[in-house]
Amino acid sequence: MKTKQILMAGALALSMVLSGGMLTGCSNSSNTKDTKTSEVTKKKEVKTIGQKTKDSKSLKMTNNTGKKIKVFETKSSSEESFSDNLLEDGDAVKNKEERTLYYDVKENDKLDVKIGLQD
């Protein structure tokens, strides 16, 4: 009976050591994944539209039109005309691409956006 208790205690201690090692292993692999994810995040820089200023607001947008956006113009709802194309020559927002838009609007105004799609 005493031998059985010693063997059970030994088995219990061994299983605790092994499970502790597994938890440590999981923890280390988790840190590796976090590092890889942050490296990928750093590499994937989101392009911008418009100029960032101290008074500008920002908006993250994703092109879900199914086509490239070649023209992107904005205005405050109180303004009469749209801005010039905010995309640089040769630049286009690809389908599913994410961009950050920086814009200025007057107080209590809304932002109006006009886009031109690739034919």
Rank of each mutant, 00 (worst) to 15 (best):
M1R: 06
M1C: 11
M1H: 13
M1D: 08
T3H: 07
Q5K: 12
I6V: 15
L7V: 02
L7D: 06
A9S: 04
A9D: 13
A9Q: 04
G10A: 12
L12Y: 07
L12P: 02
A13Y: 04
A13S: 10
L14G: 10
L14E: 05
M16H: 06
L18F: 13
L18I: 13
S19Q: 14
G20M: 12
G20A: 09
G21D: 03
G21Y: 08
M22I: 08
L23W: 05
L23E: 03
T24K: 13
G25C: 10
G25R: 15
N28G: 09
N28K: 06
N28S: 10
N28Y: 08
S30K: 08
N31H: 13
T32K: 12
T32M: 06
D34I: 10
D34V: 09
D34W: 12
D34H: 13
T35R: 05
K36H: 13
K36A: 15
K36E: 15
K36M: 14
S38A: 10
E39K: 15
V40S: 03
T41Y: 15
T41C: 11
K42V: 11
K43T: 08
K43E: 06
K44I: 14
E45R: 04
K47H: 08
I49P: 00
K52Q: 14
K52C: 08
K52H: 05
K54C: 14
K54L: 08
D55R: 09
S56R: 03
S56P: 01
K57S: 10
S58L: 11
S58D: 06
L59P: 04
K60Y: 14
M61P: 06
T62Y: 09
N64P: 05
T65A: 04
T65S: 13
G66R: 03
G66D: 07
K67Q: 05
K67W: 05
K67F: 04
K68H: 09
K68R: 12
V71E: 07
F72D: 00
E73M: 06
T74N: 03
K75M: 03
K75Y: 02
K75S: 01
S76K: 07
S76Q: 04
S76L: 05
S76F: 02
S77K: 04
S77L: 09
E80V: 11
E80C: 10
S81Q: 14
S81R: 14
F82A: 02
F82C: 02
F82P: 00
F82I: 03
S83A: 02
S83F: 00
S83D: 01
N85M: 01
N85E: 00
L87T: 00
E88H: 12
E88V: 15
D89S: 07
G90D: 00
G90W: 01
D91W: 15
V93P: 02
V93Y: 01
V93D: 00
K94C: 02
K96C: 12
E97V: 13
E98Q: 10
R99G: 03
R99E: 09
T100C: 08
T100N: 05
L101H: 01
L101K: 01
Y103G: 01
D104P: 11
D104G: 09
E107F: 13
E107T: 10
N108W: 11
D109E: 04
K110W: 12
K110Q: 06
L111T: 01
V113P: 00
V113R: 00
V113Q: 01
V113D: 00
K114W: 03
G116W: 03
L117N: 01
Q118E: 14
Q118S: 11
Q118V: 07
Q118L: 08
